[in-house]
Design a protein around this nucleic acid. Structure first.
Length: 820
RNA sequence: GCCGGGAUGGCGGAACGGGUAGACGCGCUCGACUCAAAAUCGAGUGGCCAUCGGCCAUGUGGGUUCGAAUCCCACUCCCGGCACCA
């Protein structure tokens, strides 16, 4: 064995071994139970960043651990290859997006291999491959025929200078990032998927996702936002139109003191022609970014219309205002406002001096104070005509029934979730397989004409919009239905479409005749999915939706795609997210080159539990490297003594027995940490403790001592094998094993080795630590109490005081409670 | 603004169903080796007082409990998502 730890050499050898033996190929005919471990595939931006390294190290550790546990593991990798950065790079460097993307993929693939991740590369895919996106197009045409796809208008960010649609991230403070022009809202026709048809199932099934973090399930639940309420209509005095509003609080109906209209509402637009205040609101609503965050943080403003709505139960005249916080896109663009019982309505009423009328009082009879804000809890109704005195819950039903009986409203379930707009006015994405014909309308591209291939030899210019719109060779076609000249759709799919089913395609690699085949159900659902918390809602919701669409197409048998989910935290440097603009980027490749992949993997897993932030530390990396060097040295020094004799547990000294207990405690701890809790950092800490203990025992050259050392070193190597696979591959061979560690079994703790004959109890007086006592492991409460009270320092604090009680926690502590 | 999360020594973190706060690592200090430095190895390391030992301490302020980093209430700051970044 080499005197020095040489990671470059060791890692090259291990990687060559895995490649030569095809160690990570997943085969369908393997008899072992399957385990599908999936990490979110990357956008090929050019180089791996620390977030990737962290994500993929977690996935690889889980995969290798499961493999050692006897599972047949599928761990694939691919590329989420469509997206905006490729178009930006094309503009900046004049390289076509396809060429730029494929170069990036090649570079990043090499980086992943250099990190030693155990992927089945034979299943690699890139979403920009026509053989991938053709099936997405195929599915879209199926969904179209089923009525799950429709065309409607949607608002986009329009840059009037660059004459192009901008993404939300390209809008900064309401202005275009390149042109600086004030963004305008434009309504354009787009394709939508009816995700709302699946809203109930998507929200109900969350309860069954026991392997998902509660916070992600909560976020998805809130995102879908199912709420029960009443839709009711208000007549307008002197006009034919009615205002339809939705409320989740019909019990507060008698507290309505004004109505709110969205600035884009037809009535607002009509009044704006006469009323400058309303016109200003309409103008403001037409400009600036369209993101919810941007709209929601605008200062709440409004203007009176002079119109009056008639209360559906009392006939009272209620003033109608145009209010910029009412969104046209949700519901009907109108709301009823109850300032006493809704915080936003309260704030608006305060700002404009509108009346606040309380109609619900706290159920416990406490005073209602509306001076600081609204009271939005349920309570008991007051001043509500025949409903006065009812609790909110009963009034909800009673008022809803009354409105239904009078034909002025109906109960309805509303969702915050909106249908999924999948059209993008961009070039670098999968073409939407539709043809627009003057005679036949929108016609899906027939199966035999798929894929609609994206032309790759293009020039992207700033402000030019999608080059597809300038390519007659692409868009000029004939109608598949009537044969007349027609135009192809030039919009492309949202890239979330691409990433919503890739995990299924990995299972069916190489299938040319269908989107999926029987292998999909053999491998999926994914047993463990790992990725960033930033995908908690959108990607993970869309993927769940797609899985159900594919199920209903008969392509998969399961209801949900991901059994367990691990959401990993971000990698920070100096307390901030790594970014080019902050100049705090750490390049993983430079560290791999300097310390080796094992060091980078070890530090990444050691520095924090996976779901928390990871604060980057250069000296921490050096520390991880030192540990590996010490481990290498321990094995080297041990082997210098020749082969170790067989272990005879009965013949060990007390010290040897204690060391061996440490070995088996470490197995128990690391197994729990890695297998159940995913706290790799504490598993590593435990192995470090073991390694420190082994280092201290190096002087013991007796047969029994060397046998315990051999067992201890083998254990350390096995426990670290998923985390630092290259070094462990090397050391495992050095320790005398013919078969590679990647195929070794995960060690089991020996219950006999774990036995102790004495325990230390902590003694507290009134909850404060005052001493410790050591007792036989089988000592009972009486014995513990006696020993505790006899402890000299304890006596000092108990002396002369009334003994009130003694709390005994077996194996842990004795708490003596005394009077003062 | 709305939804979700976080805050523990000089730093990253540990404490797993309320029971020894600070495991493990980094950094720092001292010592060994060396002409010297680096590397390596050994010892120490929350703050304050001290002889055994004590007092204080887990973002802030309250509460529950024999006992709270952990549970409850109210806040502060930081972070993720908000539907066209991926």
């Amino acid at each position: 064995m080499d005197e020095q730890y040489r990671p470059q050499q060791i890692e090259a050898e291990a990687q060559a071994y895995w490649q030569e033996h095809d160690s990570f190929a997943a085969r369908e005919d393997d008899p072992r139970p399957k385990y599908y471990c999936l990490s979110m595939f990357p956008y090929p931006s050019g180089r791996l960043h620390m977030g990737h390294v962290r994500n993929y190290t977690i996935g690889d550790v889980v995969s290798r651990y499961k493999r050692m546990q006897g599972y047949h593991v599928l761990q694939p990798m691919g590329w989420d290859a469509f997206g905006l950065p490729a178009e930006n790079a094309a503009m900046e460097r004049g390289v076509p997006p396809a060429a730029w993307t494929r170069e990036n993929i090649a570079a990043m693939r090499e980086q992943l291999k250099g990190l030693g991740f155990g992927y089945d590369w034979s299943r690699e895919l890139a979403t920009c491959d026509p053989e991938y996106y053709r099936w997405e197009q195929w599915l879209f045409t199926r969904l179209y025929r089923k009525g799950l796809v429709y065309r409607d208008t949607a608002v986009v960010n329009w840059d009037p200078v660059d004459q192009t649609v901008l993404a939300n991230e390209q809008v900064i403070d309401g202005c275009g990032w390149r042109s600086g022009a004030v963004i305008e809202h434009r309504e354009i026709p787009q394709w939508f998927l009816r995700i709302t048809d699946y809203a109930d199932e998507l929200v109900d099934a969350l309860d069954g996702l026991a392997g998902w973090p509660e916070q992600v399930r909560t976020m998805q639940r809130n995102w879908i936002g199912r709420s029960e309420g009443v839709e009711l209509t208000f007549e307008l005095a002197g006009r034919d139109e009615r205002l339809s509003v939705f409320t989740t609080r019909p019990d507060t109906l008698y507290g309505v003191t004004y109505m709110g209209l969205a600035p884009e509402h037809p009535i607002s637009l009509e009044l704006a022609e006469q009323d400058p205040a309303i016109a200003a609101l309409v103008e403001e609503a037409r400009t600036g970014g369209t993101s919810e965050a941007e709209l929601a943080t605008r200062e709440k403003r409004g203007a009176p219309t002079g119109l009056a709505a008639l209360h559906p139960l009392t006939g009272e005249r209620i003033p109608v205002w145009v209010a910029n916080f009412v969104l046209m896109e949700y519901g009907s663009g109108a709301v009823m406002a109850v300032p006493a019982h809704d915080q936003r309505d309260w704030e608006f009423a305060h700002a404009y001096g509108l009346p606040i009328r309380d109609v619900v009082h706290p159920a416990d009879g406490s005073e209602l104070d509306l001076g600081e804000g609204a009271f939005s809890d349920y309570g008991v109704l007051v001043g509500s005509g025949p409903f006065t005195g009812m609790p909110s819950e009963r009034a909800f039903t009673a008022i809803a029934e009354r409105l239904e009986a009078e034909g002025r409203g109906r109960r309805r379930t509303q969702y915050r979730l909106r249908d999924w707009g999948v059209s993008r006015q961009r070039y670098w994405g999968a073409p939407i397989p539709m043809v627009h014909c003057e005679h036949c309308g929108a016609v899906p591209v027939p199966d035999e004409d798929l894929p609609v291939t994206l032309p790759e030899d293009v020039e992207i210019t700033p402000g030019g919009g999608s080059p597809l719109k300038r390519m007659p060779a692409f868009y000029e076609t004939t109608c598949p239905a009537c044969g007349a000249p027609a135009q192809r759709e030039t919009d492309t799919f949202d890239t979330f479409m691409d990433s919503s089913w890739y995990f299924l395609r990995f299972a069916c690699a190489g299938q040319e005749g269908a989107m999926l085949d029987g292998r999909a159900d053999q491998w999926t659902p994914v047993d463990q999915y790992i990725g960033g918390i930033e995908h908690a809602v959108l990607h993970l919701l869309y993927a769940r939706f797609f899985h159900k669409l594919l199920r209903d197409e008969g392509l998969v048998g399961s209801d949900e795609p991901f059994t367990r989910l691990l959401t990993q935290g971000m990698v920070l440097k100096d307390g901030a997210k790594m970014s080019k603009s902050k100049g705090n980027i750490v390049d993983p490749q430079a560290l791999v080159d300097r310390f080796g992949a094992d060091t980078v993997r070890l530090f990444t897993m050691f520095a924090a539990p996976p779901d928390q932030f990871l604060e980057w530390s250069d000296s921490g990396v050096a520390g991880a490297h030192r540990f590996l060097r010490r481990l290498h040295g321990l094995v080297r020094d041990h082997l210098a003594g020749g082969p170790a004799p067989a272990l005879e547990p009965a013949a060990l000294s007390d010290e040897q027995r204690a060391l061996r207990r440490k070995v088996h405690e470490t197995i128990a701890k690391a197994s729990d940490d890695i297998g159940k809790r995913f706290t790799f950092n504490t598993a590593i800490a435990a192995v470090m403790e073991l390694s420190n203990a082994l280092g201290k025992a190096q002087g013991d050259a007796s047969d029994a001592g060397r046998a315990v050392m051999q067992e201890g070193l083998e254990t350390a190597v096995l426990l670290l094998a998923p985390i630092t696979p290259h070094l462990c591959h090397h050391l495992w061979h050095a320790l005398g094993h013919e078969t590679p560690v990647v195929d070794a079994a995960w060690p089991q703790a020996d219950p006999q080795a774990l036995e102790r004959d004495a325990v230390e109890l902590v003694v507290q007086v009134n909850g404060k630590l005052r001493g410790r006592v050591t007792l036989p492991a089988d000592a009972g409460e009486d014995q513990a109490r006696e020993a505790a009270l006899a402890e000299p320092n304890v006596q000092r604090f108990v002396e002369g005081k009334e003994l009130k009680k003694v709390v005994f926690v077996p194996g842990k502590l004795v708490n003596v409670v005394v009077g003062s």
